[in-house]
C-alpha cells in the first residue's frame, strides 16, 4: 500500500510540475508574441530604428525567425508535456481512491489530496461497492495524505462512515495530522461519534481486537 501511496504522491507532484512547466512555456510564447506586436507597433509609428537597440531583436526578419523557431520548439515541448499530463491524470484517477484489502474482513482506504464533493461521491461509490463485494466488517479510512480538512471535507467523511455503517461495516478514521486536528477543533467539527486513531497500524490493531471480541468463545474443558 505504501508503494501505491508513494506512486500517487509522485504522480501528483509530476502533474503539478508539468502544469507549472506548461504555464511557463505558454507565457514565454505570449511574451514573444507581445514583442512581435511591439515591433509592429513601432514600425507603424515609424520609430523602430530608435527603439530597436533596446530590444533583444535586431531586425524584423530576425524577430520573425526567432519567433517562428521558439514557437515551433515550444509547441513540440507542449505536445510532449500534455501527453505526459494526460497519462499522469489517468494514473492519478486510478490511484486516488485505492480500496485495499489489508486483512480478512478489513479494507483500507488511503485518501490523498483534496476531497471535494465530486471526489467524495467517487470515494463513497467505490468504497461501498467494495464493502458489498468483499463482505468486509471493517474499513479504515486513512487521511494521512489529506493536508486540509474543512467542515465540508469533514462532512464528506462523516457521510462516508455513516453509509458504511448502514451496510454493517465499522469505519475507523486514522492518520489525522496535528494541523488537521487543530483545524477540526477550531471549526468545531464533532467526530465523537466515530472511532479515530493515530495511524493505520493502530486502526488495524483495533479491527483485530474487535474481531477477537466478537468471536464465539470456545467452551472451557472441565
Amino acid at each position: 500500500m505504501m508503494r501505491e501511496l508513494d506512486q500517487s504522491r509522485a504522480a501528483l507532484a509530476e502533474a503539478r510540475r508539468l502544469e507549472e512547466a506548461f504555464h511557463t512555456s505558454s507565457m514565454d510564447v505570449a511574451l514573444v508574441i507581445s514583442e512581435c506586436f511591439q515591433a509592429l507597433a513601432e514600425v507603424r509609428q515609424g520609430n523602430l530604428d530608435a527603439q530597436v537597440s533596446e530590444h533583444v531583436l535586431t531586425s524584423p526578419d530576425e524577430l520573425l525567425a526567432n519567433f517562428g523557431k521558439l514557437l515551433n520548439d515550444t509547441i513540440k515541448d507542449l505536445k510532449v508535456q500534455m501527453d505526459l499530463v494526460k497519462r499522469q491524470a489517468l494514473a492519478i484517477q486510478e490511484l486516488s481512491t485505492p480500496v485495499l484489502q489489508i486483512w480478512n474482513d478489513v479494507l483500507a482506504l488511503p485518501v490523498i489530496g483534496t476531497v471535494d464533493t465530486r471526489r467524495a461521491a467517487e470515494i463513497m461509490e467505490r468504497l461501498l461497492a467494495e464493502v458489498v463485494i468483499r463482505k468486509s466488517k471493517f474499513v479504515i479510512l486513512d487521511i494521512t495524505g489529506v493536508e486540509i480538512v474543512d467542515t465540508k471535507t469533514a462532512d464528506h467523511f462523516l457521510k462516508l462512515i455513516k453509509a458504511a455503517a448502514l451496510l454493517g461495516t465499522k469505519c475507523i478514521l486514522t492518520g489525522i495530522r496535528p494541523a488537521v486536528a487543530q483545524t477540526l477543533v477550531e471549526i468545531g467539527v464533532d467526530l465523537s461519534s466515530i472511532t479515530t486513531l493515530r495511524d493505520l497500524q493502530a486502526g488495524l490493531r483495533e479491527c483485530l481486537q474487535d474481531m477477537q471480541k466478537s468471536r464465539p468463545k470456545e467452551p472451557v474443558a472441565h
Binding site: H23, M27, Q45
Partner: peptide, 17 residues
C-alpha cells in the same frame, strides 16, 4: 485562462500610444 489575457493585452499593443 493564461496566457490568453496576456495575449489580448499584446494584441492591443499596435493601437496603444
Amino acid at each position: 485562462r493564461c496566457p490568453q489575457p496576456v495575449l489580448k493585452i499584446a494584441a492591443k499593443l499596435p493601437e496603444m500610444k
